[in-house]
Design a protein around this nucleic acid. Sequence first.
DNA 1: ATCCCGCCTGTTAACGTTAACTTACCCGGA
DNA 2: TCCGGGTAAGTTAACGTTAACAGGCGGGAT
Lengths: 367, 367
Amino acid sequence: MKKQPKKPVTLADIAALADVTPMTVSRVINNNGYVHSETRERVMNVARQMNYRRNGLARGLKRQCTETVGMVIGDIANPFAAELTRGVREVLEERGYSLFICISEHTAKEDVRAFDALADHRVDGIIAATRASKSGNERLEELIDSGIPVSLIGREFRHAQADLVSADNLKGGYEATTHLIEMGHKRIGFIGISLTEGLRLRRFQGYLEALKDHGLPVEDGLIAGGREAAEQMPGYSTEEMGYDGMMKLLELKNRPTAVFARNDFTAMGALNAIKRAGLRIPEDIALIGYDDIPVAAHTSPALTTVRQPTREQGRAAAEFLLRRVEGDREQPRAEKSFACELVVRESTAPATKVDSSKTRKRQIKTA
Amino acid sequence: MKKQPKKPVTLADIAALADVTPMTVSRVINNNGYVHSETRERVMNVARQMNYRRNGLARGLKRQCTETVGMVIGDIANPFAAELTRGVREVLEERGYSLFICISEHTAKEDVRAFDALADHRVDGIIAATRASKSGNERLEELIDSGIPVSLIGREFRHAQADLVSADNLKGGYEATTHLIEMGHKRIGFIGISLTEGLRLRRFQGYLEALKDHGLPVEDGLIAGGREAAEQMPGYSTEEMGYDGMMKLLELKNRPTAVFARNDFTAMGALNAIKRAGLRIPEDIALIGYDDIPVAAHTSPALTTVRQPTREQGRAAAEFLLRRVEGDREQPRAEKSFACELVVRESTAPATKVDSSKTRKRQIKTA
DNA sequence: ATCCCGCCTGTTAACGTTAACTTACCCGGA
DNA sequence: TCCGGGTAAGTTAACGTTAACAGGCGGGAT
C-alpha cells in the first residue's frame, strides 16, 4: 500500500462518514444554527476521530475576515516592544483574536516586507510599532487606502484613518534633563543619537529644549553616538552604543557631570563604561536612562529613568484597532498620548561642589 | 453618493478594466506562462493604479501552500529567543518564506492556542521553541500527525517526524560547574530552579553531575528559586528571581563561595544582590551565568557564562523545517545538538584561602 | 382544518485564485 | 501543402468553507 500524500481532513470527509452534508458539519463545528443533539454528537465524534482542523484560509476567504491581527516590531529582544505586545495580546485575546508578530530588524526593507506578508494573509488589522521610514510609510498608506485598519504606536506618521498611540517623550526628555539641571548639573551629555539626526527623536528634542529653557549651551561634543550605530547595523546592540558613546565622553578634557542616555540599555552600557573608568555613579557622573525596563531597578546603582506606560500603549493601540475593525472603518483618526513619569533611583544626585567648580571654569572657556 | 464598504480589488476587477480574463492577470502578477509584453504592460498599469494586493487566502487555498512559517516562542524580550528568530529569519528570507511569530508567555494554554492559530492559517510549517508541556505536546503531536512539518528547538519532546535542534546544556552546565570546582570552590550554589523540578533543566542536571563526579555533596539549601517564580507567574522577571534567590543564599550562615545562575538574567539579578550586600565579585563570591547574552560582556564585572550557538540553532531548525516542507514530509527525524562553550570573563576567580578554610570547617559539620 | 412558527437539514452559489486544458494564430521546414 | 511547435490567450473546475435560501416536519394556536 503506497502512502498517499496525507491530504488534510475536510468538512466533506467528515460529512461523508457521518452521513450528513458539509453544511451540517460546519454548523456543528461553529456551533451555530439548528442541529439535532444526536447529529451533533455523531458529527463531533467523527471530527475528533479524524483529527479535523478547520481551514482558516477557506474560512477567511468566505467570511472575509480572519480574526487575526498582525503586529510589526523593529526588534524582538527589546523589553519595551515586549511589553507593548503584552498589552496588545491582553486585549486581543479577550476579544478572540490571534496575534501574528513580524520583525523588521529596524530596516525599512523588512518593514515593508512585513506589512506585505500580513496584508497578503488578510489579517483584519495591523499594528505598526516600528520606526518610520519613507518606503514603510508609503506602503502603510497604500494598505490603509485599500481598507486595512492600521494602528500606530509611537510612529511618526499621520494618516486620516490610522489611529495613533504614543507617549509624550518630548516632555519625558524635557523632564529628565530638567531633573539633572535642577540638581545643579551644567554639563549634561546625551548618548544615542547625533545632533543632525536628532529631529526624529522626541526625547532628544526634550533634552535640547530643556537646555535652552535653562540657558545652557548645546555642545556638539557632549552628544555621542547615533549615525553609524544602531540605525545602520541592526546587529549592533544599544548597550554597545552606550558603552562606546560613554567612552567618547570620558575622553573629553572636561567631561560632563551628568549623562542622559536614549534608553535604559544605552544607559547600562554607559554605566559599565563609567565603572570601568574607575568613576563613581552618581558622585562623579550622574546617569539617567529612559523606558524603565525591568532591569533598570536592578543595576547597581539602580537606574534613574523615565517610565512610559508601555503596556497601556499596547492596550490602547489594540482597542483602537478593534474599534475600527468591528465598527466604521472610515472613522476619523483617534489619538492618545500617554504621560511619562520620572523615576528617580540611585544613579542621579546633585552635582558635587568640586566638580561643578572645575566644570564652571572650563565651561567659560568653552562658551 | 453613499460610500461603499470598499471592497478589495480582485483579479477580476483588473481583468475587466484591462479587457482580458482573470487568468491572464494572474499570469502577469505571478510572472509565469505566456503573456504578450503589451498585454503585460497594460495589466500591470491597471493593477498598480487600482492598488491591487493579492489575496493570500485564496492563493493559499488553491495552491495548498502559503510560503509562510510560524514560530512559537515563550517570551519575547528574551535575547536568547531573539537570536533564535534571527537565525530562523535568515534562512527563511533567502528562501522566500515569511515568518509569523506567536508568543506563549510561557504558559501551556497559550502554547496550544498559538499552535492552533498557526495551523488554522495553514502555515507551511511550525518551529516550536517553547518549553514542553503536556497539553502542548499533545497538540503538537496532533498537528504532526495531520501532516504539518514541525521543527523543535530545545524542547523536550520526541516524535518520529519532528526535527530537533538543541544545545548540549547538560555538558554546558557540567563545564560551568567544573570550572568553579577547578578553581577550588566547594560550596557552589545554584539559582533558578528547585531540586524537585530540576529534572527538566539540563544545565541543572549538569551541575548535579559535576558535583557528584568531584565528590561534592548536593545541598538543598544552596539551591534557590524556581517553583513559585518564573514558571507560574509569567510577569515575574528572571532578574528578580536571581535577586531574590541570591538574597536567600546570602542569608545562610555559611554562604556559598560560588554561584551558578540558570541564565544571564538571573545572574545579573544575583550580581546586583551581591553588590548590594557589600560583597565583591569574584573575590567574595564567584558568579557564572548561562547563554552569553549581549549584556553579559558589559556588566561590571563582566560575566563569566556559557555560550550556546543560538543563531545557528535557529538556522538549523529552519533548514530542517524547509527540507521537510519542500521534500519528503514523512522522512525520519533529523537531530542536531550544538556544543556549548565556556566564556570566562571577570566574575569567576579561584576561591580565596580564607574563605575556603572557613568553608571547609563548616562543610565537615554539614556533610 | 388551517396557518404559522420553531426546529432540522439540505441545496446552491459564491469567496479569489490558479492548475490543467483548450483554442487559435503565426511561422518555418519538409 | 501540410505539420509541428512556440506563443498568447481563454475556459473550466476546483481549493474548503459558509451565507442565504429552500424545504419538510411536527405541534400549538386560531
